[in-house]
Design a binder for these strands. Sequence first.
DNA 1: ATGAAAGCGCTAACAG
DNA 2: CTGTTAGCGCTTTCAT
Lengths: 335, 335
Amino acid sequence: MVTDNRHRSTTQSDVAKEVGVSRTLVSFAFRGAPGVSDETKQAIFDAAKRLGYRPNAVAADLARKHRSAVGLYLMDIRNEVYADILSGVRTALHEQSNRLILSVSRSTDGEDQGALKSLMEAHVGIVIAATLLDSDEQVRELARSVPLISVTRPVEGVDSVYSDDAAGARAATEHLINLGHTRIAHLAGPVYDGHTVRRQSYAKTMRDAGLKPLVLAAEDFTQDAGQRATAELLGMADRPTAIFAHNDQLALGAREAAYAQDLSVPGELSLVGYDNSRVAALHGIDLTSVDLHAAELGLIAGTIALDRLRNPEAPVADRCLTTELVMRASTAPPA
Amino acid sequence: MVTDNRHRSTTQSDVAKEVGVSRTLVSFAFRGAPGVSDETKQAIFDAAKRLGYRPNAVAADLARKHRSAVGLYLMDIRNEVYADILSGVRTALHEQSNRLILSVSRSTDGEDQGALKSLMEAHVGIVIAATLLDSDEQVRELARSVPLISVTRPVEGVDSVYSDDAAGARAATEHLINLGHTRIAHLAGPVYDGHTVRRQSYAKTMRDAGLKPLVLAAEDFTQDAGQRATAELLGMADRPTAIFAHNDQLALGAREAAYAQDLSVPGELSLVGYDNSRVAALHGIDLTSVDLHAAELGLIAGTIALDRLRNPEAPVADRCLTTELVMRASTAPPA
DNA sequence: ATGAAAGCGCTAACAG
DNA sequence: CTGTTAGCGCTTTCAT
């Protein structure tokens, strides 16, 4: 049995013709607009079903002369943070009948451009972007053509929802310092403008405590990159006794690298991640991590999106959430 | 500094007016079509930049009278399998200039309808759906209005790419049987038509070995559901010594439930998952799991999509990949 | 090399 | 209740 994949899809006209009414009636019927007799409506739905008709939301939005869809850009689909943000956004948009269109970048490279650009050209009224790696200036430039909400990171002059990373990184670093560690490394991702808050807060906290910062930059934000970078680090003469990683994935990579060299966690290496993803809580992983309230970030971003859609002239939003250090068994005093 | 979020976005007409040429030229310039003098082209790009113009890909596709975008539906963004499928699809579409639009369902409930429907109404030429929970009949019905590729699961009469779940489930079950287990439970998700292959293969394998199948259905496919369901199971008088879970998330939930009752894995409970996700390979998790080659599933689906777009009349595709049992430390002989 | 005009699938006044 | 008409932002003949 072969499904019939017609080349041209059925339109309102086809349905109208089939029933013997005008396109307008079909349009009204499908939008539940008042002013269509029940019989006509029924006849229309029947014919539509028979013909396999699907409304074309995109054409509708075009005709409506305004962009109602919201676009959501996610930097890394493998990082649970972004799933949480998505779920928050969706909650905010719930029942608002706004279409949500998604786009995710390839986690392996830092070029947002492809995925983000295609989203901005998809006739969306606003795009919620989590996380942009471009410079502040570039983000502002992007926001010039389509309203943009930067989530996870503040950008002056652009609606932003983020968490207090300086505080989060400080808490993580201080936790390690208080435990008695002195050689504490920071496992960062690649350097991007506007993406150095955690790193700098770590460095400042170290210096304030009279300790020497040691920053290691992984090639990207994935577990594999974290593992590779850490493997090097652990080969050093005076290897650190603790690592604070930019995110849980990197931390998990560091953990693998440690075990690969028969170093136990936290016995010989203490580990702190960032994101507090579900895997961090798994028995046997028990990764100490900083929670940045991703779902709430998404929820707020969704709310702002709705506001912005309604009122383009509203003042720029800037919402900063707190972070929370969740202590687990991956950190302990140095041996 | 407040970014200027104009209500009406700039169009080709605006650019044309600014430069003092016709819309046609702007259109040509942006598509790199021949027949526009270099000076004109430059003037157009300058004006576009100045005005913050963004092409509207959706309107373009509409005008082009054919649907070039491919829609990708993912059942669960928290399950790595779907990230792998996405990455495979993207590889296939690479350089094909086909827009990819994504839609993911809420992992918590089984209603594909919202996310899938909106995808089908987004003017896409084809939708790749991973995973549909609807009945075969419903899927065929859906495929009537927009060409559909079912991935992860075969549907007669509809392009399908999937792996040999019967073999995968059999291998998993036999592995446990060969280890000497006799009380082996299967931790399944909720029952959906066309989604019972693993379960049935498990049951058949058990019966063939003279053992009694015990199927437990979790409320959904998440770790939490797996944990709740397993907690009950482990409370039973004659509790099983091994569990084969429908996917890694459920298996991870089972693992948590076991540790919560101070049962060690694999000492007192052997565990087999399905998907071979990255977390399964983590040191200390070491979950034995069935690999279904998700990235390749996506790659093939993407290729089929391209073919189907080119040739709507091509015969229905049906591709079945092998599965592979990856043995790790979560399985051992019963105590 | 450039422009005018028709039309994609749909909505939205405005008439009957 | 129902139909006509004029677009939305863009592409695409077909002229000039």
